[in-house]
Each structure stands twice: as C-alpha cells, then as structure tokens.
Design a binder for these strands. Structure first.
Lengths: 223, 223
DNA sequence: GCCTAAGCGGACCAGTTAGTCCGCTTACTG
DNA sequence: CAGTAAGCGGACTAACTGGTCCGCTTAGGC
C-alpha cells in the first residue's frame, strides 16, 4: 500500500505482523466474505486480537487497506493499457483484470460497494480507476471499436454486475464470468446497437451514490 | 402464498398479524437488506417478537415465505408470455418483471441466492421459473430472434447480474437497470455474435451451486 | 355471556461480534 | 547491555442477534 507517509516507521515485529494481518484478512474475507469475524482473522494471522485493532483502528479500515492494495494493482494494469494500439483490447484487459480479482475475492466487491466508500484513500483510487477507464472508453469509441453511447461509469458498473452474476456458481465453475465478459463485449459492438431507453448515470450521480452510502452509514451509526 | 394446505385455519387476529408481518418484513428487508433484525420487523408490524416466531419458525422461513410470494408473481408473468407471438418479447417481459422486482427489493436477490435455497417451496418455484425461461429461450432461438449459444441458466444469472450491477445507484437513479437490460438484449442479438470462450453452466452445475450452498449453510450451523 | 384454546407481548437467554484495556515482553537506542 | 517506549496477547465489555418462554388476553363456538 503506497502513499503511507506516516511519521515514524513501525518496529520490525509490528511491520511483520501488519503484513501477516493483511494477508490473513485477505484470505479470510475471500473465503467467507466481509462477515468474517476479526477474531478469526487474528487467529489466522497468529496474532492477538488487540494487535489487529492497534494496527487498524476498526474492521472497516482493515478492509479499506486491503481494497486499496487491490485497486492499486488495477490502476497499474489500466495505466499499462493506456497506449495499447487497439484501445478496445486495452479496455478488455482492464475489465478482465478487475473481474479476475473479484472472482477470486468474494469480499472485494462487497467492500468497494459497502464499506470502502467512506475511506479517503479508497475513494481516490476508485476515482483514478474510473478516469483511466474513461480514457480507454473514449479512445475505443474514437477508433470505432465500441458503441458511442456507453460510458466509463457503465463499464465499471457492468464489470461488477458480471462478477456478481457469476458469483453464485463460483464453486462449481470458477471461470464462468469469462463467458459473460464475452457477452458483455458483444453488447458493446457498435454495429446494430439499439437505442438505450435510459440515460447513463452522470459522473455526479455516480459520486452521489457514494455520498449517499456514506451518509447512510453515518446515520446507521448514530441510531 | 398459495399451496398452504395446513389443517385448521388461523384465528382472525392471527391471520391479520401474519399479513402485517409479511408486509413489514418485505419493507424492512427491501430497505436494509436481509441483515435487518427480527425485532425491527416486529416493531414495524406493531407486534411482539414472540408473534414473529410463532408464525414463522425462524427468520429464514419468514424470508422464504416472502420470496415464495414474489416468485409466484414471476411465474405467473412467465406463463402469460409462453404463447407470445414474438417469443423474444415474451422473454424480455419476463426478465423485465424479474428485474423490476429486484430493483424494488434489495433483499430479494440476496434471499434467493443465500437463504431461500434450503426451502423446499422456494426451490420448487425457482425451478418452475427456470423451466419457463427455458421454454421462452428455446422459442426465441427457433424464431431466430436471439443467438443460439445462450441458455436459460445464462438468462437467469444475467438478469440477477444486471440488477446487482445497477443496485449501487438505486437511490440516485432507480431505473438505471433498464439501460443495462437494453444492453443485455443487444448482447443476445444473433447477428455478429462472437464465439463465447466459456461454456454455459449445465443444469446440473446450476443445481449443484444450490446444493453446495445448502451444505455450506448446514456446516456453518454445525460449527 | 361464558369458557377455553389459540394467540399475544416482551422479558429473557445464549451466542456472537467489534472494540478496549492492561500487565507482560521485546526490539531498538545510546 | 541496560533502559524504555513500542508492541503484544487475550480476557473482558457492551451491544446486538435469533430464538424461547410464560403469564395474560381475546376470539369465537356454544
């Protein structure tokens, strides 16, 4: 996790434990979803529960730290595609990488949608990813490789959709999402595209959804 | 909820409370998802918590009862479309109805995927719905209206996918799913369909996913 | 109108969870 | 190598959950 410019560095054992916690948490969340308990994570990391909360002030922040890691990976993939010669292929590669992440990691999408929103760092990465996607979409459209009426917001939402749709069958066919990814890109073909009956979400709406969630979370806590 | 052939009928007040509970539960689940607590539901129905559990032996069964209601509606819609003159339109109507339900009711999909599985009655409806979908898909394919390589299982999974994909924006644009529904049907066009890189889930796999969940639920309880 | 079984509410229970606290241990500094 | 602040584990707490129980109320048949 880059961008951590805290003052004094952690003691060696603390840093080691931090890494073990992140790994253990990622594993446990991937297996059981975000409902997995903190004590389970602590056990898996062979660390006291107190250590978890000393390193991450709340479960939420622990989740956020993991998501930041993942999003950084994705942003890197996206940046690498920014000057692909066939932009649609670049876009596909990015979406594929994201889907793969989600397929592997049951907690990932849940996390972005439900918990990570409040976190400044997660928000920043998510925004960066959206902008990279926007650039790829635009180039692919200029090249006439995908239809003109879809937006980066559409792509981000639909990538999530596909993974969640395939998720129930993960145990029995872990790669099913690839099928629906193909179908998705068929939908993006410019030829013969039908007129969409509903407008794309605006960037403002897209953001507002985040804000709304944050407010709801705050309200729930106040209750 | 049809198919309830219990022996003696409920007393008038009990029946009234039962309805109030179902309504309140549907509302609360729609708002807060299935994590909503039973006492919250009881409060909303202006009924003691004991009453909830007298009428529905567990929270799970309460959820199942609601889902059965919803699935019955869908099955009815589907049956009505079985002899539509343009089968693809019939299919679209069914999928649309399902999506509408899910858009309105946050708990619905969660419920089918996670909880309702164990319940005999839910399973029966779900199966019926799948078979109706299969019939519609087949006819649409025979009429050359949709591509040949998608199955009823695909359609069911993708309908869920679309709703879940649009879900994060529900508060800010509750009809967004319509946009993605259009996109989905564009993907189903037979012309220019690409070859899908992954096979459709077989009916067996589709069912096995259910079985696996049931087993997992059992295991979780035993733990 | 009376009687009683059916129904009711809500206090209660056992289990689980995120998060706190504090006495002991250990990595680093000089 | 000694002193000490940083770190540690895990028992503990407070809140909340699904589910039970039981003394009181009431619908509805007679």
């Amino acid at each position: 996790m880059a961008l951590d410019s805290e003052a004094r560095p952690l003691r060696a054992d603390a840093e080691r434990n931090r890494r073990r916690l992140l790994d253990a948490a990622a594993t446990v969340f991937a297996e059981h979803g975000l409902d997995a308990s903190v004590s389970e994570i602590a056990r898996r990391a062979r660390v006291g529960q107190g250590t978890v909360f000393r390193r991450f002030p709340s479960k939420e922040r622990l989740i956020a730290a993991i998501i930041v890691d993942r999003l950084d990976e994705l942003v890197a993939v996206g940046e690498a595609q920014l000057d692909a010669e066939r932009p649609a292929e670049g876009l596909r590669a990015l979406v594929l990488a994201g889907a793969q992440l989600q397929a592997k990691d049951r907690g990932f999408f849940e996390g972005i949608a439900g918990v990570g929103l409040e976190d400044e760092e997660v928000h920043a990465r998510h925004h960066a990813l959206l902008e990279i996607t926007r650039a790829l979409v635009q180039r692919a459209q200029e090249a006439g490789e995908i239809r003109d009426d879809v937006t980066a917001e559409d792509v981000v939402l639909l990538q999530g959709a596909i993974c969640q749709g395939a998720a129930p069958l993960t145990e029995v066919d872990p790669d099913l999402w690839r099928r629906y990814m193909d179908l998705f890109f068929d939908a993006l073909r410019p030829e013969g595209a039908s007129t969409l009956s509903h407008p794309a979400p605006t960037p403002e709406q897209f953001n507002a959804a985040f804000e709304a969630k944050v407010r709801a979370a705050g309200k729930a806590r106040a209750r």
